[in-house]
């Protein structure tokens, strides 16, 4: 579904990704873990075109999308829930969801997606006329994911969905992520600080350290790996 080949990306003179390669097979959940500043967010931004890749290829369904503007990449069925959610705080919950369906022309399809999002996150339905900026952190995260689902993506990227949420809510969000993957067949690339949880829900994973992939493999195997255990799983 998605393959990165030797991807290099930088912010001005600072190189944040030093030629990383990874692959996300269709129907899978793949996770990218790593310490603060490792380059996880940068990887997702490069994929969705928010940051122009310096070198390397980004193959999406076999097509190199490196260099395309974001709105065209999104049109191909890719959806990115960015770090810090970036919901439109000045718009209502409903308008945020409508923005998610911006490229959808078919009203019935939009209504179906809306029904699905409301079934997944009933809280959003109760608050649909509320200004999104007044939602709680957890509700905003639900909205960010719901908004991404509105475009009926084939490929979903989530940047730290657990950030700042209470443990119970983290559990709910992760259950939803699995559900989205299983029921809708959406392929997911998940970036997480919470490595334990990420490796639990994913099929395979990559460990990123200062812009380089240092470990990769089956999630189950990574969880047993002594290096991963000591560095990311708390021993």
């Amino acid at each position: 579904m998605l393959e990165l080949r030797n991807l290099t990306a930088s912010y001005g003179a600072i190189t944040a990704l030093h030629g990383i390669s990874l692959s996300v097979p269709p129907g899978r959940i793949v996770t990218l873990i790593g310490a603060n500043g490792a380059g996880k967010t940068t990887t997702l931004k490069a994929i969705s075109g928010l940051l122009r890749a310096r070198r390397g290829e980004i193959l999406y369904d076999g097509k190199n999308i490196a260099g395309l503007p974001t709105h065209q990449i999104v049109k191909l069925g890719l959806s990115h829930v960015p770090e810090g959610r970036m919901i439109f705080v000045n718009l209502t919950v409903m308008e945020n969801l409508q923005m998610g369906a911006y490229l959808q022309k078919d009203r019935q399809a939009i209504q179906r997606e809306l029904d699905y999002v409301f079934a997944t996150f009933p809280r959003l339905q109760e608050r649909r006329q509320q200004i999104a900026g007044t939602l709680s952190g957890g509700e905003q995260q639900m909205l960010a994911i719901g908004r991404a689902l509105m475009s009926k993506p084939k490929f979903l990227m989530l940047d730290e969905p657990s950030l700042g949420l209470a443990p119970l809510l983290v559990k709910t969000i992760f259950e939803k992520i699995i559900e989205i993957n299983r029921q809708q067949g959406i392929t997911i690339l998940l970036v997480e600080q919470n490595a334990n949880l990420a490796l639990e829900v994913s099929h395979s994973g990559y460990v990123l350290e200062t812009g380089k992939i240092t470990l990769q493999g089956d999630s189950a195997a990574l969880r047993r790996n002594p290096q991963v255990r000591s560095a990311y799983l708390g021993g």
């Binding site: 960015p82 439109f88 718009l91 308008e95 409508q98």
Partner: peptide, 24 residues
Amino acid sequence: TKIGMAMRALSFNPEAAALMGVNT
């Protein structure tokens, strides 16, 4: 209108608007 909503979204966060498929 849709384009009006895109204007409001863009004025709040251009990157997020682009992620929705808005041609900024």
